[in-house]
Computed example of a mutant assay.
Amino acid sequence: MQNVTLKVEGMTCGHCVSSVEGAIKNVGATGQVDLSAKTVQIQFDESKLTLDIIKGAIEDQGYDVG
């Protein structure tokens, strides 16, 4: 398992947290958003999933991933 923390711009509320965490879950990873820090800590199996797929899922929700 790999752990990564990403900066996510555009999150402002609880709905944003749900959107980002849901997008991560939908691709097969787990994530926990820190809204005040505007980050998300992600845990995933790198043999089944790439970081680019996870970033794309978050960006598809309308957020900028740094």
Rank of each mutant, 00 (worst) to 15 (best):
62 G>A: 12
25 K>Y: 02
44 F>R: 14
14 G>Y: 01
41 Q>K: 15
42 I>N: 09
25 K>F: 07
29 A>P: 09
6 L>V: 04
3 N>Q: 13
32 Q>V: 13
16 C>Y: 04
22 G>W: 02
10 G>M: 00
55 K>A: 05
16 C>M: 11
33 V>C: 05
12 T>E: 08
32 Q>N: 14
60 D>K: 12
43 Q>Y: 09
65 V>F: 02
34 D>H: 06
16 C>L: 02
40 V>N: 07
47 S>G: 04
5 T>Q: 11
18 S>D: 11
22 G>H: 04
22 G>C: 02
6 L>P: 01
37 A>N: 10
3 N>C: 00
51 L>K: 05
26 N>A: 13
50 T>Q: 10
22 G>Q: 11
33 V>L: 05
21 E>W: 08
28 G>I: 12
27 V>W: 02
55 K>C: 09
47 S>I: 00
34 D>N: 15
37 A>P: 00
55 K>G: 03
66 G>A: 14
6 L>M: 06
61 Q>R: 14
23 A>F: 06
58 I>H: 01
27 V>Q: 05
16 C>S: 10
36 S>E: 15
2 Q>N: 01
40 V>F: 02
47 S>F: 00
48 K>P: 04
15 H>F: 05
4 V>Q: 07
49 L>T: 13
10 G>W: 00
12 T>Q: 12
49 L>V: 07
17 V>N: 04
46 E>H: 08
39 T>M: 05
43 Q>T: 15
32 Q>H: 11
66 G>I: 14
63 Y>M: 08
16 C>T: 09
60 D>C: 01
34 D>R: 06
14 G>W: 02
55 K>D: 06
48 K>V: 09
14 G>F: 02
61 Q>D: 08
60 D>W: 01
49 L>N: 13
7 K>T: 11
52 D>P: 03
37 A>I: 03
40 V>M: 10
40 V>E: 09
55 K>T: 13
44 F>A: 07
44 F>E: 12
18 S>L: 10
28 G>V: 13
46 E>T: 03
26 N>P: 00
48 K>A: 12
23 A>E: 14
24 I>V: 15
64 D>E: 14
54 I>V: 15
53 I>D: 12
57 A>T: 15
45 D>Q: 04
51 L>F: 04
24 I>S: 11
20 V>Y: 03
46 E>Y: 00
53 I>P: 00
20 V>I: 11
61 Q>P: 00
22 G>T: 03
31 G>N: 10
7 K>I: 07
16 C>D: 05
32 Q>I: 05
51 L>N: 08
45 D>C: 01
63 Y>A: 03
44 F>L: 11
57 A>I: 11
12 T>K: 09
44 F>D: 14
46 E>R: 08
44 F>C: 10
64 D>K: 13
49 L>A: 03
19 S>R: 15
43 Q>M: 12
62 G>L: 04
12 T>D: 03
2 Q>M: 06
56 G>N: 14
48 K>C: 02
57 A>D: 12
14 G>D: 13
53 I>S: 12
32 Q>D: 15
31 G>S: 12
23 A>I: 05
27 V>H: 07
32 Q>A: 12
21 E>K: 06
30 T>I: 04
61 Q>F: 01
46 E>V: 02
